[in-house]
Computed example of a mutant assay.
Amino acid sequence: MSILEISGVSKKYGNLHALQDITFSVEPGEWLSIMGSSGSGKSTMLNMIGLMDKPTSGEVRIDGIVTSQLNSKKLTEIRKDKIGLVFQQFHLIPHLTALENVMVAQYYHSMPDEKEASAALARVGLESRARHLPRQLSGGEQQRVCIARALINYPALILADEPTGNLDESNEKIVLELFQELHREGHTIIMVTHAPEVGELAERQIRLEHGIIKEIRTPDGRREAVIQ
């Protein structure tokens, strides 16, 4: 069964068609990048997948659950249980340590566990920075805290929004190597990016243009048929 199924999804804001009849699926353990320039529909697509917005028409299915008719409370529960979010802007709580920021995600899911949160930080190479506040961490370290926070509740899907957009070249390399390692371990990743060199690391790439799928490509250069 697919982790994610997007079927005929469209999103309309007034007269603006942000997405038009989008259909694709993501299999367990796959790394998919969603690419495109500003205004292509990437952010809208991310909001649909992350259950932060509802499509005007069509269906979003997460791990077999049809989400279109669910209320906001149930959508929040699915997002909490099924999706790990990594943001471009980090969204760490400034007065909490790295460890406490990871534990916050546990609190909203089940129960904080300091030992488990420490292991998650060690997983991303930050065991020695656990007691540091966000302002005491580099951009790359903050992003790795975000990844640890996203992983802590064992989500079915990791959804990353421009995860290297605020990083310098050195930290970008570290973060991308971490995503590559997570993929090798079998994690399912959907990464939204405007950067070709980042998107092309994925197994499969969807390129959006003006709210439609322009092409679907695999790393070996093959192009899949696009149904519109």
Score class of each variant (00 low, 15 high):
S2C: 06
S2P: 15
L4K: 04
E5H: 06
E5I: 01
I6C: 12
G8M: 02
K12R: 14
K12S: 07
G14E: 05
N15A: 14
L16N: 15
H17Q: 09
F24N: 10
F24L: 14
S25L: 05
S25H: 13
E27A: 15
E27D: 10
E27W: 00
E27H: 09
W31L: 13
L32V: 14
S33M: 11
G39N: 10
K42L: 12
G50K: 03
L51I: 05
M52N: 00
D53Q: 05
K54T: 12
K54D: 00
K54G: 02
P55G: 09
V60T: 13
R61S: 15
D63Q: 12
V66A: 15
T67C: 15
T67Q: 01
T76A: 15
R79L: 09
I83P: 10
L85D: 11
V86C: 00
V86A: 07
F87P: 13
P94S: 14
H95F: 11
L96P: 05
T97K: 08
T97D: 04
T97C: 06
T97I: 03
A98V: 08
A98F: 09
E100Y: 06
V102D: 02
V104N: 01
V104A: 06
Q106P: 02
Y107D: 04
H109P: 05
S110R: 13
P112I: 03
E114K: 04
E116W: 11
V124M: 05
L133Y: 11
Q136R: 11
L137N: 07
L137C: 11
G139R: 08
Q142E: 08
Q142P: 12
R144D: 05
I147Y: 04
I147C: 07
A148M: 02
A150G: 13
A150Q: 09
I152E: 04
N153K: 09
N153L: 02
A156G: 04
L157I: 03
D161N: 06
D161F: 03
G165L: 00
D168P: 03
S170Q: 07
E172T: 14
E172Q: 10
E172H: 00
I174D: 12
L176G: 07
F179M: 06
E181W: 01
E181M: 06
L182F: 10
R184V: 01
E185L: 14
E185M: 10
G186Y: 02
H187S: 11
H187Y: 08
T188F: 09
I190G: 12
I190Q: 12
M191Y: 11
V192S: 11
T193R: 10
G199T: 08
G199L: 10
A202N: 12
R204L: 07
R204S: 09
L208N: 13
E209H: 14
H210Q: 15
I212P: 01
I213S: 02
I213Q: 04
E215Y: 14
R217H: 05
E224A: 00
E224S: 05
A225F: 00
